[in-house]
Design a protein around this nucleic acid. Structure first.
Length: 281
DNA sequence: GGACAGGAAGTCC
DNA sequence: GGACTTCCTGTC
């Protein structure tokens, strides 16, 4: 899955199978990757900045961080302890033509383990919205409400704001451009500020976690599944958005059987989503 | 270049 | 089934 090939004070070299930064950056699951070149990114996560470079076309990566931080933060973020080959093998065995094309096209996509609070707000913002604009709104939200962390490539990076920080700047939400989603964001902030613990949703099944998340105002089936998949580690969560519904109509006659990929259909979903978007362009 | 219309990882009522 | 904020993108 991965092996560390070299350790220095401030960077470590890692060899990883099934990881491609450009693929993940364009897969629509994360919005805080700042490209510094196609295979060079500054990534903000849990108040930390990672500068990472992929040495293409190899599967070698340079993580600019300590060994300790790699073990504590980034290993989990990139899901490095998960073997993605077994997901690919399941698709090979299925002999499903659309999925075979999807994984071929999306080689190197992983499901990142992002922060559940950040994914909740991010995917509330994503509704009825497009990816470039989502990215811009999230960036503004962090600049206005978050804490400055450090500079990366000459630009200041900000943490994703807490519920309290967003509430402190609630008057700025309009100028940030969140639009009609403002009331949803504020409701989520108040719930979290009152002590709601999203982390506990990890202990539930994906189905129960989705049911709980849908109690948030402005969180429906799609957003709840995204939070479950990208923020809570529930790989069986299967977000159905317009793209996925289009795929199911077009290639599967309106019915897609997720039980073929018990426990990881969300991973398969991500390859499907990515492929349909790529071929549409 | 600048105006304009269409549409966007949905949800609520 | 219509309304919802705002702005990115393609088109003229």
């Amino acid at each position: 899955m991965y092996s560390i090939t070299d350790i220095l004070d401030t960077r470590i070299n890692v060899q990883v199978d099934q990881l491609d930064l450009l693929q993940i950056a364009s897969s629509g699951q994360c919005f805080r990757w700042y490209p510094m070149g196609a295979y060079d990114y500054a990534i903000v996560h849990k108040g930390k900045i990672l500068k990472i470079r992929q040495l293409t076309p190899s599967n070698l990566f340079i993580f600019e961080c300590s060994k300790q931080e790699f073990d504590k933060v980034w290993k989990e973020y990139f899901d490095l302890d998960t073997d993605y080959q077994k997901y690919l093998d399941a698709v090979y065995e299925s002999e499903d033509r659309f999925l075979l094309s999807s994984i071929s096209c999306g080689m190197g996509i992983r499901i990142l383990n992002q922060d559940p609070w950040e994914t909740l707000i991010t995917f509330i913002i994503s509704q009825q919205n497009n990816i470039p604009r989502i990215t811009g709104i999230i960036d503004k939200l962090c600049r206005v409400c978050g804490d400055p962390i450090d500079e990366a490539y000459g630009e200041m990076m900000y943490s994703f704001p807490s519920a309290e920080q967003i509430l402190d700047h609630y008057k700025s939400l309009k100028s940030i451009g969140v639009g009609f989603r403002e009331k949803y964001i504020l409701d989520a902030c108040r719930k979290i500020n009152a002590g709601y613990n999203l982390e506990m949703l990890r202990n539930l099944s994906a189905e129960d976690a989705v049911r709980e998340l849908k109690k948030f105002y402005g969180v429906g089936d799609k957003v709840a599944n995204c939070v479950s998949l990208f923020g809570l580690g529930h790989k069986e969560a299967f977000p159905r958005d317009v793209w996925i519904n289009r795929i199911i109509d077009k290639y599967y006659g309106g019915e897609f059987d997720t039980s073929r990929f018990e426990g990881f259909s969300g991973v398969i979903q991500q390859y499907m989503f990515h492929y349909e978007r790529v071929i549409r362009e």
